[in-house]
Amino acid sequence: MSDIASRVKAIIVDKLGVDENEVVNEASFTNDLGADSLDTVELIMEFEKEFDIQIPDDQAENIATVGQAISYIEDAK
């Protein structure tokens, strides 16, 4: 697993209180990992902080799964 992927997954485990095994690339934050709309906003903010990037709202809307978050951040870095 890339460094970015492991850091993204660690944030998701911490913020959503889910088991590490559940945090697979296909997992949807809302459908699979129990996030509500505020949890999703918090996750995006944590990604911004951790990787020192800005994720505009219109692009944040397209980040719905673990894999989408990892590839967005990999592209942005």
Binding site: L38, V41, E42, M45, E48, K49
Partner: peptide, 9 residues
């Protein structure tokens, strides 16, 4: 302003 979305509620 990086306020947590849970701040207000």
């Amino acid at each position: 302003p990086r306020f947590n979305p849970f701040f207000i509620p």
